[in-house]
């Protein structure tokens, strides 16, 4: 991760100041198998916040395409992608980080959107307004939200 740049983000957390190293979308190093080894935010993820991101329309909205048994209190899970039950048995944490950040690396041509990507779009829009937007865009999810989602996915085990 030599090209990783560090950003000192001062977070007021419970009265104390925490330093976190955020990897910007353009600087992410995908490994040989498209995995991302370390946290994009420099901090661990919160699985509960991750579940929220996955079920919220304006955020990950992952359940639009994927069914997740453990989230069945949320209505209407889609069937465009495979169910995510037991996904942590199939993939490692770095694999999952790579898939959520940019699934097109792992699955070329995938319909799954890249959640941590800011450039290289055709007619990028300003959110859902239908109006044009200048690149780089804000990524669909922040580094911390990616970590939260990955932390949640790591709880999805069959065994």
């Amino acid at each position: 991760m030599s090209r990783q740049f560090t950003l000192a983000v001062a977070l007021a957390l419970a009265g104390s100041v925490v330093q976190a190293e955020v990897v910007a979308p353009q600087e992410v190093a995908y490994g040989e198998y498209r995995a991302i080894e370390t946290s994009l935010s420099g901090a661990p993820g919160d699985p509960e916040a991750g579940a929220e991101v996955m079920t919220t329309r304006g955020l990950g909205n992952c359940v639009a395409c994927h069914a997740v048994g453990a989230l069945d209190e949320v209505p209407f899970h889609g069937e465009v992608g495979p169910p995510l039950d037991g996904v942590a048995d199939r993939w490692t944490e770095p694999d999952l980080r790579g898939i959520v950040a940019n699934a097109k690396m792992t699955f070329p041509g995938s319909i799954m959107p890249a959640f941590y990507k800011t450039t290289g779009f055709i007619r990028p829009g300003d959110g859902f307004t239908g109006k044009a937007a200048e690149e780089p865009l804000e990524p669909l999810l922040t580094a911390q939200q990616i970590e939260d989602v990955v932390a949640y996915l790591m709880t999805l085990r069959d065994e």
Binding site: F121, I122, R123, P124, G125, D126, G127, F128, T129, G130, K131, A132, A133
Partner: peptide, 11 residues
């Protein structure tokens, strides 16, 4: 227009 907008694109 609605379908293109829903891809977060300029319609």
């Amino acid at each position: 227009k609605g379908c293109v907008r829903d891809t977060r694109a300029e319609t």
